[in-house]
Amino acid sequence: MTAATPAASRVPQLEHTGRVTFPRVLLSEWTKFRSVRSTAWTLAVGILLTVLFPVLFATVTSSHWGQMSPQDRANRSPLDIALAGVNVAQLAIAVLGVLVITAEYSTGSIRSTFTAVPKRLPVLWAKLLDYAVVSFVVMVPAVLISFFASQAILSRHDILQVSFTAPGIARCVIGGALYTTMVGIFALALGAIVRNTAGGIAVFAGIFFVLPPLMFTLPQSWNNAISQYLPSDAGRQIFALQHGQHTLTPLAGGLVFAGYCAAAIVVAAYLLHRRDV
């Protein structure tokens, strides 16, 4: 590619002189967010996974229902089916959360970003807010579709029917979207700390997929006492209907997970402010 048009040599003046404000940084970050392909792709994958798994599970459950033992039937819960995709989709949301900040470092655009906004922290707040709103707005319809689609499939065999307005159901379904949003926030903060895409994703995977099974190597009583406070276990209570002896309530679990998110954001903000770019 070559630049075809000849360049002028006198810089036109700009009458306007605006200062940096938070709404402006928010708009700028939104422009950056929507103007790279990875955004649309990753969100599409997130939605697809959220919807695909429940549809698949509902279909399989319907077709096998006749051969299933009463015990197996009792173990199936309509909500588990409806939200089966959330656990998978969270990885896509986390990857995009990490990318939102680490891609700036890998491509070098962070230098442009921090030259325009040298106070730096507004950039972090804007990215978090932009991404939180986007992932929530995208995930709410996704979990609603998952719920009603899986229910519709199950209804053909008249099995596992549950009303959206039944106690706890709406909270769980919307909770699935809320949980993934918080996962995205947590991942973005991790990305800001690690500043490297592969590293950020690895740290996220370690905390969410490696740490929980590792807990089973601990003595049972320790595992029971500790696991419920892990980010993944605590966060998952937001969209869990039933709560056991060793799990937190939805509110407590959500607050614990929010605490982890807040801690990660504080560390990210501190490092962002202090470190050389």
Binding site: S28, S35, R37, S38
Partner: peptide
């Protein structure tokens, strides 16, 4: 200092927007 996946227009637009 530019995201390789972003167009020149959007890169400049994002910078411009920080200052209105």
């Amino acid at each position: 200092s530019v995201h390789t996946g972003r167009s020149a227009y959007n890169h400049l637009l994002a910078l411009a927007q920080t200052h209105g």
